[in-house]
Design a protein around this nucleic acid. Structure first.
Lengths: 339, 339
DNA sequence: CTGTTAGCGCGTTCAT
DNA sequence: ATGAACGCGCTAACAG
């Protein structure tokens, strides 16, 4: 409970040297002799000294903090990304501060404000579903705070992104359904403000075209892809004159909502594979869902994004301008429990 | 790119008042007139002032940071906890810094050191599998840094914990298997250094006793509960003369390893429900695994733990001494795909 | 190699 | 209600 009040001055006083020497010794500066280093280190442990990074960071005008903004940390994709971020950051002596936008633009604005006030050295962000303007992001840019998009990005000149090949993912998902014999394939898409949903939709269209299936706009439903949206979308689809025989959902959450609703109502989608979502829940690989997923390399994405961000921080600027790193996703087909 | 150099002094100068008045105005102190407040606020936005929390925190000797230490953030239980932590912390103006021990004691020590150096106001920790000593935790205590265990705790006098009723969970899981007709139930347990595994094991024993099934020590395997441990445990069990007809795994990861191995080798566990693990993966509720889980309220735990921690921080000390908050888990049985 | 000096930006005395 | 002055703990610049 005793407040740790030991500072470098206390060490200095005890040793009859100057605090700046102590500082240098503790930072292992080459400009101080081994003997004094030794003495200082000893005295430090003797007095129970603990370095005060708050003071050090403040003095150096560097927080050694990087902020990560995600819609919701408990979604496995995002927590995987963060796992990667934390590992790379930790190795480089950075701490990671986590913020959830909870899919709210207001909150996202609030968060960037706080991060700025805390003088974080960099920001990694995957924007919310509501984010349809760039003002808060431009503020980061104007301020000179290094940042980077991952996954859910927006178009801002000069800002790099680490992305997943969403077009290919949408294409693969749709083609997979077609290969299973589906002809009337619905697509649950998200806000077209977000490039990722636009791209997945384009992949869907492209696959249909390749296989000479007519694109029907009424089979594409737009929502914020929450669980209830999946449910409601299924409702709407069932009221159509067309019999849907495959669904491609643009995220896992809506897919879950759709699946639950289908099961609850005992609806059998005729063809074998029904829903394709984007996810990489590890547990899903041991079960037998009628679910094929396009798995996203979240962990890898987190590591890579952080490496780039740290480089930007080092250089005080991005070397590449508005570069997009595209990672591959992989289609994982699982043994279906439907016959 | 222009460095934001605007400080309260710039505002003061522009207004021909003192910086201390500006400081008071910005902090909405009652000891400053409305007129000057107004002028200050206007000038602030005009000059593009941004408060510097680094300086403010340093001056106030308060970081407004709380550190969360988890074994691995990408495990759904932990990311759920963190989601809850972040929400509560954010509302109270605290930032959350995330650290992963990756189940390594060395890393955990390293982390507490960093957190201390960063002068975090409090720490929430769920210890690693390797953690068999308390030195680093006692250091926190000695330092007067408020902290709290959640889930994986250790016994330290005066330190509060938020836990899940592991005894009951183990009991429920085992009794469930018994109700399905299992008689030879194996248990994959973890390091007995950790109370949670000891308690789950005790629940297992207790359920056996209640139903007059003899406890056989050779059916309990101890490991660090990684995927490969699940696999290896199954191997060992198969080499026993006894035919296992049920498995109770003390966590989800080992359960996954076990399941995968069983399926790969086409082993049919005779009875209907085979494995009970601790998890709450949301996606698992729409699929049809031969898996019953004891779901843990991670999100709720995160919120509650944070509330207690913030209270401790407010008071500079814990009001209750070594209190244990016990949350209930719930057994979730899923439609089995085995016949 | 070490000491001296001077802040980083803010909040908090104590005056007035 | 406002100003003057100081210092949080540390590091960087310049001396010597």
């Amino acid at each position: 409970m005793e407040n740790n009040k030991v500072t470098i001055h206390d060490i200095a006083r005890a040793l009859n040297i100057d605090s700046s020497t102590v500082s240098r010794a503790l930072n292992n500066s080459p400009r101080v002799t081994q003997v004094t280093k030794f003495k200082v280190l000893n005295k430090a442990t003797e007095l129970g000294y603990q370095r005060n990074l708050m003071a050090s960071n403040f003095r150096k005008q560097k927080s050694n903090l990087i902020g990560v903004v995600v819609p919701r940390i408990s979604r496995h994709f995002f927590s995987s990304v963060i796992a990667g971020v934390e590992e790379v950051a930790f190795e480089s002596g950075y701490n990671v501060i986590i913020c959830q936008s909870l899919e709210s633009l207001d909150r996202e604005r609030n968060i960037t404000e706080t991060l700025l006030a805390n003088r974080v050295d960099g920001v990694l962000i995957s924007v919310s579903m509501e984010t349809n303007s760039n003002d808060h992001l431009l503020q980061l840019k104007k301020n000179g705070t290094q940042f980077l998009f991952f996954d859910r990005h927006r178009q801002i000149s000069g800002i790099n992104s680490v992305l997943i090949d969403d077009f290919q993912g949408g294409f693969d998902a749709t083609e997979h359904l077609i290969s299973k014999g589906c002809q009337n394939i619905a697509h649950l898409s998200g806000p077209q403000e977000l490039k990722i949903y636009e791209n997945r939709l384009n992949g869907y269209k492209s696959a249909l075209e390749k296989h000479h299936i007519k694109y029907r706009p009424e089979l594409v439903l737009y929502s914020r892809l929450m669980e209830k949206d999946g449910k409601e979308s299924i409702e709407k689809l069932r009221s159509l004159p067309i019999k849907i025989d495959g669904v491609f959902a643009a995220n896992d959450v809506s897919a879950i909502g759709a699946m639950k609703h289908l099961k609850k109502n005992g609806v059998q989608i005729p063809k074998d594979v029904a829903i394709v979502g984007f996810s990489n829940e590890p547990i899903s690989s041991i079960i037998e869902p009628s679910l094929t997923t396009i798995d996203q390399p979240g962990y890898q994405m987190g590591k890579q994004a952080t490496e780039i961000l740290l480089e930007q921080i080092m250089n005080g600027k991005s070397l590449s301008n508005g570069k997009k790193i595209i990672l591959k996703s992989s289609l994982i087909e699982r043994e279906s429990s439907r016959k």
